[in-house]
Design a protein around this nucleic acid. Structure first.
Lengths: 162, 162
DNA sequence: CCTATACAGTACTAAATAGGTCCTGTTTAG
DNA sequence: CTAAACAGGACCTATTTAGTACTGTATAGG
């Protein structure tokens, strides 16, 4: 299936946690780890990546930690994914100039993958961190309605976070 | 990055090849392998999967082979991906009932992932095999326009097919 | 009715990737 | 000056994916 890595999933959880803090305080990696029930080392690694991508700012020294580099409204899920997984492209061809692909003579799918990629990118870009941070109950009704039982009972292989 | 597996990529190439045959003839696995420059075993495996998903019909015996189970207009890229990779869901939560996720108390992202998944699914479903099979030059202009240099020179790790 | 050909199904091996942990700096508040 | 916390790696392991091989079954055509 098409999926993002666990790390990216964690990344979104961590970012959401930061965004949800009303005081926008600086939070230490260890605190974030506790708050999200993720391994401290894992969270630390994650934060470094997000920092380098410019989504966070860090403060060193004894009362150091991390905070969002800008308002949650200006950070998109696409940016978070991009920071952790690299650019959103679905096939081999996707990331490289079309003329580099060894199948380019046989394969006419190229331009279509680009279209698909664009749609996905766009969807991801339009979803802002601020929206994720907003508690479920308070979201504007209608937009997210979903029938109970709407969910497919697909077989999942991986199942739980550590 | 978000990406589909190589096998799926191959699957699309093979399906496209079948769809492109004007006579809609039955083609043997070995012929398809040659035509696509993929390993015969790999193609054979792939075809079985696509068969079981109902996208192909097979003919056994000495002049046997595979052909599309229905017109290329009625087969979507989403269906091909679904056949090979399983349902399109991007996170752990995605595939299972929301109340099963161990992070459900902390994580408010659930319903958003569902939305994203829907968008991706829809995009994939709307792209039909017929369109991929059509040679590039003949596609209706306008819909697919792309500036030269539009392509991001992102760093790719994997590079060529076997 | 026999046999070569091609699908059906499954099991296995090897390689790539991702996940997770740890260690050795460097900065800085107090 | 020192303890807390970030910076930046290196590294090991487990999972997943890719690719291959083997044994069985159906069938067209001589």
């Amino acid at each position: 299936m098409i999926r993002i890595g666990k790390l990216t999933d964690y990344g979104i959880v961590v970012m959401t946690h930061l965004a949800r803090d009303p005081a926008q305080a600086v939070m230490a990696a260890s605190d974030l780890a506790q708050a999200t029930s993720l391994g401290p080392s894992t969270v630390a690694k994650l934060l470094k990546v997000l920092l380098r991508a410019g989504l966070l700012v860090s403060h060193r020294g004894i009362r150091g930690g991390y905070s969002l580099s800008r308002p949650a409204e200006e950070i998109s899920v696409g940016q978070i994914i991009g920071a952790i997984e690299g650019p959103v492209v679905m096939t081999e061809c996707g990331g490289q100039p079309a003329n580099k692909c060894s199948m380019r003579h046989v394969c006419t799918a190229q331009s279509h993958w680009h279209r698909i990629d664009d749609v996905v990118r766009e969807a991801l870009e339009s979803l802002k961190l601020e929206e994720l941070a907003r508690p479920l109950r308070l979201r504007k009704a209608g937009a997210l309605q979903r029938q109970p039982g709407d969910q497919q009972p697909a077989d999942r292989r991986r199942s739980k976070r550590p």
